[in-house]
Design a protein around this nucleic acid. Structure first.
Length: 575
RNA sequence: GCGCCAGUAGCUCAGUGGAUUAGAGCGUCGCCCUGCGGAGGCGAAGGUCGCAGGUUCGAGUCCUGCCUGGCGCGCCA
């Protein structure tokens, strides 16, 4: 990374200053490089001298002058390469500007990297898992799950860009109470459908208490009947429901899968909760924890003694007194599987805020399994409120009449959904204004960015038509002609593109990719300024300059489509 | 009651402990089209960063207390 290179250069300068006696031989804190807020403070700056002052005071008791320290460092930073100029500023800041030649040449580096532009190797050799959505397989996805999908997917994209080996997983809760209720509800719908269509005697079955009643169940039931005819209706209810589990699971999971695919979200693995029971892993883990005294029997139930771990106030039931395990039991086995069997270095679970209470418990589980709790990270996100025509979209849960991800995607389009759900930091709730998201107006930020990309494409296309060499191809004299890019608007655009690595790093560090939306806008804005100020295809523009600018435009396209892709959005050629 | 999160411009939101002016978009008010997509660009107005203390050379950012709103504290998930 550029910033790492700068850090290295400054660190070496500190070393030189120390060995020549200009700086005292004390232990200094590591050099930090930051991005100044103001452009005239350079591309990068370091507050090293200010931190060094207190380090010297601590070590020797002497008071040092930060400006003097900074001066000693500045003198030892060679210009050339990527460093254009170095200056001492204010109370002791070291401001560094990138070299113009180096900036120009980096246009070619952007083109070389192409679709992987901005990739860094921070995660090299590490296997991470992102588990997201993991909604109950009991029906279509509630729109709120859309935020989970978008966050998890973009985060996984960004982690891959940062060099991590990432696995995307959806945990299918096909074993608990909710799934059972779903199957029972589906059974009732199926029987009713058979009674109606196959003339069977009415049994007057009713959806069980707490069961599911959405209209989608009838669609599911139809699918079952298409596969099985009325065969299951002639079996004992218990037997029929057992058989229905498979069909029901398949149908609902497929439905959710399609729904997520409609906004471009896919998974590497759909992990079955039931499989943890089938292979006995849950029992095995409960025994194991029981042997270690972490799990005990009390009041007829089996308890995990979570309260012996920090942050936990109470114990948790893992097996109810009626013998049925809670979801928490399989969660223990599931995380054992993730960390011990599959050996993920780190796992990120994306959860809605209403699961926040589960976090300390999982921390306790990690400790009980003798795993470093740091290896499990929870990305919590707040709820989404849908607004249409200035009013909150309310829905009745009882009738199962929910607004689904599919419906929202159909109404506003996958790209707008993704962008909108990504702009806000996860811990904040979102008021998602659907009426605004569909408007092709200035207020809609999604279109601003995509329009910028389309305009770039149109420019490149026009270039090809007006007799330029295929602008998508880098010419042999590219290294020479990019040297003609010296307009402030051109250099600013290059600088902005070169922030890509840092933007990716930032999203990874915070486990939150929302900065990408702002970066995309910023990049687009910077391109627009260039576009206004620098003509490309115009008779007044010298041919080589036009060619150089076309390379820059192509690089801008590379950068902009890269950010859009990281966010999981399309980069339209035209709109 | 306890815990977690949020409170920044009229609105929607960024903000990684540092340099006299805390940013963006929208909205408002002015400009810029004999030129590559005006779904654009430039500029202006607009802020007690919820409140009160504290730490620091320096706080929107860290600490404490309080106010407001959301969520969580089940043999639910």
């Amino acid at each position: 990374m550029i910033r790492d290179q700068i850090r290295q250069i400054v660190t070496e300068a500190v070393g030189s200053a120390q060995s020549s006696g200009n700086l005292p031989a004390v232990d200094f804190p590591p050099v930090e490089i930051e991005r100044p807020n103001q452009a005239d403070h350079g591309d990068y700056s370091s507050n090293f001298a200010l931190l060094a002052t207190s380090a010297i005071k601590k070590a020797t008791g002497q008071r040092a002058n930060p400006r003097q320290i900074a001066q000693s460092v500045v003198e030892n930073i060679p210009t050339g390469g990527l460093v254009g100029s170095v200056e001492l500023a204010g109370p002791g800041f070291i401001n560094i500007r990138l070299h113009e030649n180096w900036l120009q040449q980096s246009v070619l580096s952007v083109l070389e990297q192409g679709a992987s532009f901005g990739a860094i190797d921070r995660g090299k050799g590490q296997r991470w898992q992102v588990e997201y959505v993991s909604a109950n397989p009991t029906g279509p996805l509630h729109y709120g799950g859309g935020r989970n999908a978008v966050l998890g997917d973009a985060l996984a994209n960004v982690l891959e860009a940062a060099g991590y080996d990432v696995q995307r997983e959806f945990y299918v809760n096909d074993s608990g109470t909710q799934f059972q209720l779903f199957i029972e509800s589906l059974y009732v719908c199926y029987i009713q459908l058979c009674e109606e269509l196959d003339g069977l005697t009415k049994r007057n079955l009713e959806i069980p208490e707490g069961g599911y009643q959405g209209a989608y169940l009838h669609d599911y039931a139809k699918l079952v009947r298409e596969r099985r005819g009325d065969r299951l209706a002639h079996l004992e209810p218990g037997e029929a429901r057992a058989e229905l589990r498979e069909d029901g699971r398949e149908i609902v999971v497929r439905d959710i899968e399609d729904e997520l695919a409609s906004m471009g979200v896919t998974f590497d693995r759909w992990f079955s909760e039931k499989s943890l029971y089938d292979e006995g892993l849950v029992d095995q883990l409960l025994e194991q924890l029981s042997d270690k005294g972490e799990v005990i029997k009390r009041d007829g139930a089996l308890w995990f003694l979570a309260s012996s771990y920090p942050g936990n106030e109470k114990d948790e039931v893992v097996v109810r007194s009626n013998g049925a395990p809670t979801y928490f039991a399989s969660d223990i086995a599931y995380h054992y599987d993730k960390f011990v069997r599959r050996k993920f270095d780190r796992v990120i679970n994306v959860w809605a805020v209403d699961h926040q209470g589960h976090i300390p418990r999982m921390g306790a589980v990690m400790r009980a399994l003798e795993l470093d709790p740091e290896r499990l990270k929870i990305l919590l996100y707040n709820l989404v409120k849908l607004i249409r025509d200035g009013q909150e979209v309310k829905m009745s849960k009882r009738s199962g009449d929910i607004l689904t991800v599919r419906e929202v995607v159909e109404e506003v389009g996958p790209d707008a959904v993704r962008f909108m759900l990504l702009t806000t930091s996860p811990e904040r709730s979102i008021d998602f204004d659907m009426s605004l998201a569909v408007q092709r107006k200035n207020e809609n930020r999604v279109y601003y960015v995509q329009y910028g990309h389309a305009r770039i494409c149109s420019l490149l296309q026009r270039a090809a038509q007006s007799g330029h060499q295929n602008p998508e191809k880098v010419p042999d004299d590219a290294a020479e002609i990019v040297g003609l890019l010296s307009d402030p608007a051109e250099l600013t655009l290059i600088r902005r593109m070169l922030e890509m690595e840092e933007q990716i790093e930032l999203a990874v560090d915070r486990l939150s990719p929302h900065n990408l939306t702002y970066y995309a806008e910023d990049l687009t804005k910077t391109f627009s300024v260039f576009y206004e100020n620098c003509q490309v295809l115009h008779s007044d523009v010298p041919r080589d300059l036009a060619r150089a600018r076309l390379l820059l435009v192509l690089a801008a396209k590379t950068a902009l489509s890269r950010v859009l892709n990281l966010m999981g959005m399309s980069a339209p050629e035209e709109m």
